[in-house]
Every structure is written in C-alpha cells, then in structure tokens.
Write a protein that binds this DNA or RNA. Sequence first.
DNA 1: ATTACTATATACCGAGTAA
DNA 2: TTTACTCGGTATATAGTAA
Lengths: 218, 218
Amino acid sequence: MDEKITFALRKIALLGAIDDYVTISSRELGDILDMSQQSASKRILDLMDGEFITRDLGTRSQRIKLTEKGVAALKEEYNEYRRLFELDDHIVIHGTVSSGMGEGGYYICQKGYVDQFKDMLGFVPYEGTLNLTVDKDDLEKIDLLRRPSDLILKGFTSDGRSFGDVFVYKARIKNMDCAIVMPERSHYRTTLEIVCQYHLRRTLSLTDGSRVDLKVEL
Amino acid sequence: MDEKITFALRKIALLGAIDDYVTISSRELGDILDMSQQSASKRILDLMDGEFITRDLGTRSQRIKLTEKGVAALKEEYNEYRRLFELDDHIVIHGTVSSGMGEGGYYICQKGYVDQFKDMLGFVPYEGTLNLTVDKDDLEKIDLLRRPSDLILKGFTSDGRSFGDVFVYKARIKNMDCAIVMPERSHYRTTLEIVCQYHLRRTLSLTDGSRVDLKVEL
DNA sequence: ATTACTATATACCGAGTAA
DNA sequence: TTTACTCGGTATATAGTAA
C-alpha cells in the first residue's frame, strides 16, 4: 500500500467520508494535505483509479466517499498501529543462532503435539527448531517467559514413552510469525528453541552466529 | 508530519524497535519498504536527522531504536485512526447555510448558558450561531438527535425571564469542532443552529446557500 | 557481507491555463 | 467559481561503486 495513497485517504476519511459523501474541493483538500490544488486534484484521480473513493462531480463542487476497498486499506494500517500500541505486551530478546539438537525439536515433531500446535497457532510447524543462544544481557528476560504460558501443549503417552506439557510463546522474527517451545520440565538454559511454519534458517538466510531479534508476546 | 517518515517509522516499529534496539540492515529495510538498499539507507539517515530514531552503527550491522519523538509521531497518527474506527458513532448531515435569527443564537449568548458551555465543550462559543437548513433527504437524521443528549445546558431564570434546558450535540464541520444547540422545547424544524469557538461564516468562507457537511457525534 | 557517496534516471509538484 | 490538462523545474530513487 502506497503511503501517499493512505495519507490522502485518511485525511478525507477524517472529514466523515467513510459514512457518507462529503463535499470537498481540490483546493480545500490541497490545504489539508499541504499541497497545491493541482496536486490534490491528481491525488483524487489516483484514489479513484485505485477504487479507494467514489466521487460525484458537479459543475462547481464534488462529493467524495470512501469505497469498501478504501475503508479496508485504512483498517489495514489501523491494525498495524494497534499491534504497536494496544498489544504492547511483548519483549525483545536478542540472541545468536546456534546448532545442536535441542530436545524441543524432537518433542515438537511428535504427532501428539503437532495436532495441538496447529489448532493453537494455525500452522503446522516446520520439522525442526531454530536454536537461539540468548545474549547474556537478555538472560533475565527469559524469566518473564517462565510464568505459565496460556498456550500449553498437553502431554501424552506414545509407545510407552511419556511426553510432558510444553509451554508455547508466540513470537516474531523480522515480521515472521513463529513460536518459542519450552518443555515444562526443561532445566534452566541459555538457549531458546523456535518453531515456525517455514525453515527459518533458509528463509531468513541464517547461519550459526547470525544475530537475531526475537519479539515475544507475553 | 511527512507521510514518508511515518511509513518507514511504522515499519521499523513493527519489528519491535519501540521497546529495544533491533538489528535491521538497509537491504532488509528496503525489502520491507519496497525500495532499494540505497533509498532505505537514505530514509534511515532522514529519520536520524529528524531525531525519530537512534542508531548504533557497527562495521557489519546496525541497530535501530525509536526515540521518544519517534513514538510520539506514530501515536499522533494512531490517534487519527482511532477517531476513524473507534468512535464511529456519528452521522453526517448535509445542509445549506441560511440566515434568519434563530432563537438558539439568542439563548446561547446568555451568561447562564455560556459558563456551562465552556465547562462542557472547553471553549467559549462565538457570539451568534450558524443556521443550517438540512437537506430534505437528511431530515430523518435529525430524529436521531432527538434522543436526549447527555450534554444538557441547564435552564435558569434571569431578569424574571425563564430559560429552559438546551440539548447540545458535539459536531464537526471540515475538522472544525463545533456543536449543535437545540432548545428543549423547540418545535420540529428543518434548521439546525451551530455554535463554534470561531466565526464559522468567516473562517470557512460560508455564505447563504453554501453547502455544508456536518458530522455529528451521537 | 555492510553503509552511503555520486551521478543519472525517474517521478513528482505546481504554475499557467483551458473548459 | 470549479476540475484537471500540459509542461518545465525540482526532488526523489536507483545504479554503480568506494570504504
């Protein structure tokens, strides 16, 4: 979505053009957008071209109203702001990609977990986890995760082997949705295990030692 | 606020850069902003120039965090969206500016009302009202206002003359805060009387017959 | 691999103006 | 009064490249 488009669209919407047609000349819109009458006129044509607004043009006035698509475009941007300011219950954990087989990777591939995981997060995890060695300065942030998550994969028994509960924390790496998996009885460690729908190493071109910022929802 | 600035700022904030430093190369930012590495680099310099972000630049990576000013800029835009989508309890009434002495204008200038008005709306109304003849198609919308407003100027007696209650409805004309005043015992009319901190006729260059879109909070 | 400079290409803006 | 065209000046973007 072009930022010039949503800027003009938002200013027009603020005049009430979501609910009904609003009378606004290109000169007036130019004043609001801090640009010339000519540029505002062009912007209106662009908005119509993208079907973000409809207009009925009289000989000495025009009336503008947002289309469904126009409202949707604004809502999309609004949701980005909500992610920033309404759900500001997250922390950022810095760390380094490391290898080494974590038991979380073994756990999460069990069918008993995968089905629950899909219901919970909405995706089937890629087979295998990304190991993240947490920066020394951020180790204390892990304790914030030790509070029982409200996302818990229930334990089960399979082939005579018992699998315990696993805590899950929704997270993001560079806008990629992922999750921390943490077996309930894991001992204190400096490494987190991340699961994702995609192969994070390949998708984000990560190798051992790559720096990663993990944004975790609390 | 320049829209290019807030666009880049928002995308960086979404990576978690409000809470803490976040590692992001200009190449990666370019991908996110759909522009070249060079332009993204320039955008970062612009953001630093405006003191919207701080950066610590290493030899092979940079870390970015929003400043107070940067967060404030985003919150300003967020508030515009809240006005659009959270308080969507309003209607738009179309009408035409007309003259003719409404009794509302006489009423509202009484000291007994003005003091209450200032407490309620936060401004002292300009002496005189703007008369708005409502479009035939929008007359039924006035009935929505007939529900008792939660903003009521209490009646009083002055010089042996009694003044009744007046309903007040917050409204906006082209982003100007104003209010509809409606004496409780007024008979059904097709004309609304608008008060504002400023002289609306002059400020908005309105003359008799000018088309006006009135956005009313319910 | 980075960031960011310079130079060239492109897009954008607005003055003038027609309808 | 409007809207919106053309056109020329300016700002913005990117390719090439240095550090």
